[in-house]
Amino acid sequence: QEVDTIELTRQVKEKLAKNGICQRIFGEKVLGLSQGSVSDMLSRPKPWSKLTQKGREPFIRMQLWLNG
C-alpha cells in the first residue's frame, strides 16, 4: 500500500523528540543507516511512488517502529 512519507517522517520526528532519542541511535538500531542518511530522509522524504523497493524499506521500518 501507498505510504504518506511526509506524514510518516513527521510522526517519527515527533516520537524521537518526545522520547529523547537521537537520530544517530534511531538510524543505527532501527533503520540500519548512518545518521546522515536518516537526517536526509527525515528532512526531505521522497514520495512513495518515486522510491525503489530498497528505498521504501526504511519507511516500512519506520512504520513498524511507530506501530510497535
Rank of each mutant, 00 (worst) to 15 (best):
Q1P: 04
Q1L: 06
E2H: 03
E2P: 06
E2Q: 10
E2W: 01
V3P: 09
V3Q: 12
D4P: 04
D4C: 05
D4Q: 03
D4T: 05
T5E: 06
T5Y: 06
T5G: 03
I6N: 10
I6T: 12
E7G: 11
E7A: 15
E7I: 01
L8K: 14
L8V: 14
L8I: 15
T9D: 07
T9M: 02
T9Q: 05
T9W: 06
R10G: 10
R10E: 11
R10W: 01
Q11G: 07
Q11Y: 06
Q11V: 04
Q11R: 10
V12L: 03
V12E: 09
V12R: 09
V12Q: 08
K13E: 06
K13Y: 02
E14K: 09
E14I: 05
E14W: 05
E14D: 09
K15H: 05
K15R: 10
K15C: 09
K15P: 11
K15L: 11
L16F: 05
L16P: 13
L16R: 12
L16V: 07
A17V: 10
A17F: 09
A17N: 09
A17Y: 06
A17I: 12
A17E: 11
K18D: 02
K18N: 11
N19D: 15
N19G: 10
G20I: 03
G20T: 10
I21L: 11
I21W: 13
I21M: 10
C22S: 14
C22A: 11
Q23R: 12
Q23S: 12
Q23I: 01
Q23L: 12
Q23P: 12
R24Q: 10
I25S: 12
I25N: 11
I25C: 04
I25M: 14
F26I: 02
F26T: 00
F26D: 00
F26E: 00
G27N: 06
G27T: 06
E28G: 11
E28H: 06
E28Q: 09
K29W: 04
K29H: 09
V30S: 01
V30I: 13
L31P: 05
L31V: 05
L33Y: 05
L33N: 05
L33K: 10
S34P: 15
S34T: 06
Q35C: 11
Q35F: 14
Q35K: 12
G36K: 12
G36H: 15
G36D: 14
G36R: 14
G36L: 12
S37D: 15
S37Q: 15
S37F: 13
S37V: 12
V38Y: 14
S39N: 14
S39D: 12
S39I: 14
D40S: 09
D40Q: 10
D40P: 10
M41N: 04
L42M: 06
L42I: 07
S43Q: 14
S43L: 08
S43P: 04
S43K: 12
S43Y: 07
R44A: 13
R44E: 07
R44M: 12
R44L: 08
P45L: 06
P45W: 09
P45Q: 02
P45F: 07
K46W: 04
K46G: 03
K46R: 10
P47W: 14
P47T: 06
P47V: 11
P47I: 04
W48G: 00
W48D: 00
W48S: 00
W48T: 00
S49L: 05
S49N: 14
S49D: 05
S49R: 13
S49P: 05
S49A: 11
K50H: 07
K50Y: 08
K50G: 06
K50P: 00
L51W: 11
L51H: 00
Q53M: 10
Q53I: 09
K54T: 10
K54C: 03
K54G: 05
K54D: 10
G55N: 00
G55Q: 14
G55R: 03
R56P: 00
R56S: 01
E57P: 01
E57G: 09
P58G: 06
P58R: 11
P58L: 15
P58D: 09
F59L: 03
F59V: 00
F59K: 00
I60Q: 08
I60V: 14
I60Y: 13
I60S: 08
R61I: 01
R61V: 02
R61M: 04
R61F: 00
R61C: 04
Q63M: 09
Q63Y: 11
Q63W: 12
Q63V: 04
Q63D: 02
Q63K: 14
L64F: 03
L64M: 11
L64N: 15
W65D: 00
W65M: 01
W65H: 00
W65S: 00
W65F: 03
W65E: 00
W65A: 01
L66D: 00
L66P: 00
L66R: 01
L66E: 00
N67L: 09
N67V: 06
N67C: 06
G68F: 04
G68V: 01
